[in-house]
């Protein structure tokens, strides 16, 4: 009976973790899509970052293959969850920096264009 209760708790915790991963990756992907709509990242960046978020959500949600992979890689300690969580957060921060870089690139073009249009040259 106690075993069943413990299993239930473990299952609940696992489902909760899956939900957190899924919600976070959906949030991150929605940010990615919005940045694309605003032309702040290129379509290529959108594809790359979508792959990252989909990959994370698949690993988080598909328990069987993920567990097999974890066992293969020798991951077993609970503290590792925080390590991997940190990696996900870091990835999101890299994405934010990438968006900022794309924005700067676009703004650079606008500045360069304005300077060019302010100084037209013509032979006198």
């Amino acid at each position: 009976m106690e075993d069943a209760a413990a299993m239930g708790d473990a299952l609940m915790a696992f489902v909760t973790l899956q939900l957190i991963v899924l919600v976070f990756t959906l949030f991150a992907w929605s940010r990615t899509l919005l940045r694309l709509r605003d032309h702040e990242i290129t379509p290529m960046s959108f594809i790359l970052w979508s792959c990252v978020w989909v990959g994370i959500s698949l690993v988080g949600v598909l328990a069987g293959p993920s567990r097999a992979l974890a066992e293969y890689l020798g991951i077993a300690r609970p503290v590792d969850v925080f390590v991997y969580g940190s990696i996900v957060v870091l990835l999101y921060m890299v994405f934010r920096m990438h968006v900022r870089q794309e924005g700067l690139r676009h703004e650079t073009t606008l500045v360069v264009r304005s300077l060019a249009m302010m100084n037209p040259k013509r032979k006198k």
Binding site: V112, R113, A116, P120, K121, R122
Partner: peptide, 26 residues
């Protein structure tokens, strides 16, 4: 410039699409 064209100059390279857009806007 020697030919009599109006010349706009991007101070750094931004690509052909950006250059055409500059010319079109002007």
């Amino acid at each position: 410039l020697q030919t009599g064209a109006t010349v706009l100059r991007h101070i750094i390279n931004r690509g052909q699409g950006a250059a055409l857009k500059t010319g079109i806007d002007y």
